[in-house]
């Protein structure tokens, strides 16, 4: 699915004044592309995802997209009252799909995510990585054309995360989904993305685009990944410093 974001701006109301979250952001995503949005915390990356998902409306600009959208959060957000298989089948059940058909699909996606053994478990019995895999299965089963992922691995430990990078690349290659992946982790972005869009500090703008032409599957510790990451880090560091300066400034004002 092709996605076009044209000159999007968005402001939020904070106490007395408006704070710009996004400023004139444009993005063109081709079908089957894997895009990573990279930027310091609070730069509006998540806001952009919410706008694309249609959960919020932009103040200015337009978004063109066709087809179904799936969104994944930093938290798995599985429903604790449902078994894993019922969580995964939830969306289909809401669409009133026939039960045998749901069961078949659930089996397929659970085995794709290596969760077949946990079909009957409740979410609290899963580890963090398994929860995110279940959440991914729950999103993918609805067959979205565009998959939006908002720092989905940020809360996981390093080993689990590395395994999931491999899984995600494999699934992406198999299903040919278009993916937009938000992160503040440079290596993660380079490891996963065809393109990495580096954002400025608030209000978020796209500062620079990096095309990553490395063969897949990539590994977090590949030398090439590390090299490109360093390059991008230079770019990003400026923005992180800006955020730090702004925070220090804010603190000073509060103390005055």
């Amino acid at each position: 699915m092709r996605l076009q974001v044209k000159n999007i701006s968005k402001k939020f109301k904070a106490k007395s004044n408006y704070v710009g979250a996004l400023d004139q952001v444009s993005l063109d995503v081709k079908s089957g592309e894997f895009i990573c949005l990279l930027g310091p915390s609070g730069c509006g990356k998540s806001t952009l995802l919410n706008l694309i998902a249609g959960l919020e409306a932009p103040d200015q600009g337009e978004i063109y997209s066709r087809g179904k959208i799936g969104l994944m959060f930093q938290e798995a957000a599985l429903f604790p009252w449902l078994k894993v298989k019922d969580n995964v089948g939830f969306g289909l059940k809401m669409q009133k799909v026939h039960r045998p058909e749901i069961a078949e699909q659930v089996d397929k996606y659970l085995s794709m995510m290596h969760l077949s053994a946990f079909a009957e478990a409740y979410p609290h019995e899963l580890s963090g990585g398994m929860k995110q895999r279940a959440a991914l299965a729950r999103t993918l089963i609805l067959n979205p054309d565009l998959l939006l992922m908002d720092e989905p691995f940020a809360a996981l430990d390093a080993q689990t995360r590395e395994r999931l990078y491999g899984d995600l690349q494999k699934i992406w290659q198999e299903t040919k989904k278009t993916i937009i992946f938000v992160t503040h982790n440079v290596r993660e972005a380079v490891c996963l993305g065809d393109r990495v869009e580096v954002f400025t500090a608030r209000p978020g703008k796209i500062k620079k685009e990096f095309k990553i032409n490395l063969s897949r599957p990539r590994n977090l510790n590949d030398v090439a990944v590390a090299q490109i990451s360093n390059e991008i880090m230079q770019e990003l560091k400026e923005e992180i410093d800006k955020v730090a300066a702004e925070m220090a400034d804010y603190k000073k004002h509060q103390n005055d």
């Binding site: 998902a53 959060f73 609805l142």
Partner: peptide, 27 residues
């Protein structure tokens, strides 16, 4: 609020949202 967001993202609305997300969530 995450449950509500997740429900909406999975295509649930109105009465369905109440029966399948809000009610079990408050149980």
């Amino acid at each position: 609020p995450l449950f509500i967001r997740a429900g909406k993202m999975l295509g649930v609305q109105g009465w369905q949202l109440f029966c399948h997300v809000i009610f079990p969530a408050i149980l």
